[in-house]
Write a protein that binds this DNA or RNA. Structure first.
Lengths: 244, 244
DNA sequence: TATGGTTGTCTATATCAATAGACATTTTGA
DNA sequence: TCAAAATGTCTATTGATATAGACAACCATA
């Protein structure tokens, strides 16, 4: 399996670095044959650390629900996987996820009407000071939060989108209700940062976790911007795929 | 500016969390007016920590070359920015970077001929056991490493690609030399993880830093795979953009 | 040339992270 | 049923993190 040795002295606790590497190995399928993590003593030897340090790492993974330790038996792998998000002209949240998770949905947590900031106006190609509708949503799959998104819509065309979306639970269907038969993804930007405090609770992350941030613009078939979104994804639960 | 308060007790040192947030603020342009970071005492108050903790964070940023402290004056911002990588059918490393950095190049650090693993064979659509050429490259911009890539090429068509690439320094030109007039990006996968030990030195990262990993497949105009690559990017130096 | 604002350095203390060793408890299989 | 292998728990020690306070050194400017 992976490489040995871990860093010493640097602001990130050893047990956390080891937890990250074990999690990566699990997601990579390194332990699929047995369905179990190697014994603590073996991991301690492999990473060149004390067994107690490995135990701290495994305790963190157990806290995340990824493994479950059974005394006398070993540490079982409970959950694994990264959801795949295809990004293309036809990117939609629930669509690509449906076949990967038993339960996938996006819930509305807040909505408001406001004046577009300079940034939002620029992306949506609106005049400065134009009104927009803002929606805050959380995407979930299999009872775990996956993403937290803030979306802006031009208020003149989509004044009631919050109510409709809240009732239907689908942006695509809400658009159709409001006269947008179809729409396409114009551009997607992706960055990665450490999670900020506000995302920790919503995405059920522990501090120091990674989030992948996307800025996305959707437009109708005439090329008129209809939705600008900033989303934060729990990095250890997702993978993006761009098909050209 | 950003939100207050920082987490306590979690395997990630406070000073590191604060360093990450200050770095993010700098990249976001929060301090562009003055060109300086707020005074240590102000930051300590803002984050709710001791001034010494802020000093540790700033020392880390100084180590990265992002800020420079001047006694009696303040802490100046030295460098800032994220390189943008457009991902499209015509994705090439140096092309999109040229206009953003004064100096951009990709250097060969290792090359070998080997038998394709199951994974590589699958991506390149080769028969099991087929020979491939592997190249290890490091992409740099403005004297800082940005990415570390491992690429595989079918050995039957591209046996000499290592020599040619080493001499020319461009994959695109090496392909042309070997009869591939043009090629396109077929698929790109993106994930984010913490940096592994092997990447720390090559990418000049500190432990706990984030890397963005891409798996990419390039094919010639007949759709035949010509290159499969796994790349790691220093997440705080890059942004990916997908234009549809 | 003073003065206020800022970074640099030092001492002291409490808590967390990591190592080390020993032994108990539970499961599996010979 | 016994022994090996695995996780669970406890004590002790060391070094890194973080807080607290005080003061020195330096810069800009009124």
């Amino acid at each position: 399996m992976a490489g040995q040795k871990v860093q010493r002295q640097t602001g990130v606790a050893l047990w956390r670095q080891i937890a990250d590497r074990i999690r990566a190995s699990i997601n990579q399928g390194d332990f699929d044959e047995t369905g179990m993590v190697p014994p603590e003593t073996a991991l301690a030897l492999q990473f060149g650390v004390n067994r107690h340090t490995v135990r701290s790492a495994l305790a963190a993974l157990a806290q995340e629900g990824i493994v479950r330790a059974v005394q006398g038996r070993g540490t079982l792998i409970e959950r694994k996987e990264r959801l795949n998000f295809p990004i293309s002209k036809r990117t939609r949240f629930s669509q690509g996820i449906g076949d990967q998770a038993r339960e996938a949905r996006s819930v509305l947590v807040a909505a408001s009407r406001e004046i577009a900031t300079a940034e939002v106006a620029r992306w949506l190609k609106l005049a400065p000071g134009a009104a927009v509708v803002r929606l805050e949503t959380i995407g979930r799959a299999d009872h775990r939060p996956v993403s937290r998104a803030t979306s802006w819509f031009p208020a003149d065309r989509f004044a009631d989108i919050a109510e409709i979306y809240g009732a239907i639970g689908s942006i695509t269907k809400a658009f159709r209700e409001l006269g947008v038969a179809d729409y396409v993804r114009v551009v997607t930007e992706i960055t990665a940062t450490h999670a900020e405090e506000g995302d920790l609770a919503d995405l059920e992350l522990s501090p120091g976790a990674i989030v992948m941030n996307t800025r996305a613009l959707n437009a109708d078939l005439d090329g008129v911007p209809v939705q600008y979104s900033i989303s934060r994804f729990a990095a250890d639960r997702v993978r993006f795929t761009i098909e050209n």
